[in-house]
Design a protein around this nucleic acid. Sequence first.
DNA 1: TTATTGATTGACT
DNA 2: GTCAATCAATAAA
Length: 186
Amino acid sequence: MARDLLGCILWRRIGRTLLAARLVEAEAYLGANDPASHARRGLRSPRNESMYLEGGHAYVYFTYGMYYCLNVVTQERDIAEAVLLRAAQPLEGIQIMQKLRPKARKESDLASGPGKLCIAMDIDRDLDGESLDGKRLFITRGTEAVAGDEIAVSPRIGVDGAPEAAHWPLRFFLAGNRYVSRRSVK
DNA sequence: TTATTGATTGACT
DNA sequence: GTCAATCAATAAA
């Protein structure tokens, strides 16, 4: 799923305005058996409850005391697997995004990270559990095809707390794309 | 009840 | 390269 989401378009409707961005980086989190997942060992709490929804819903969590991250829930109900959307290329409503994210000086930095993406597209816990085929949030196939050899794979970012899973190759991104979160990391 | 730690970012050396 | 911001969930006591 993480692989397939690359090149897809994430849409966010806020009243009459519509924002869109092309996904260029995503990470897979494998539920109960993944020590780096919020659902490791079957953990379940109000925070991660929407991970247990059926595929096609949003899981939005608050982290480091100040940022939100958006996930696509992928499995059947009660199986808590999800894909973290880490970076995207702004397509529509770029001026609005710039207003929402004044710290970004370049367009390529508007959504070049999971927290940044949520700031640029005004995504917070209010959207947690929402359908990804809904009014405020939805995803469509991209118009630009992604070639198989365009997709690079690496360990996930920031999972140092789970040494056992630290090297798992579950981060997918478009090789050389300037909108990914870390240009130095291959 | 208290302590630790993040699926991060931005400022700074 | 280092580090602080800032808080909720989880772990430890």
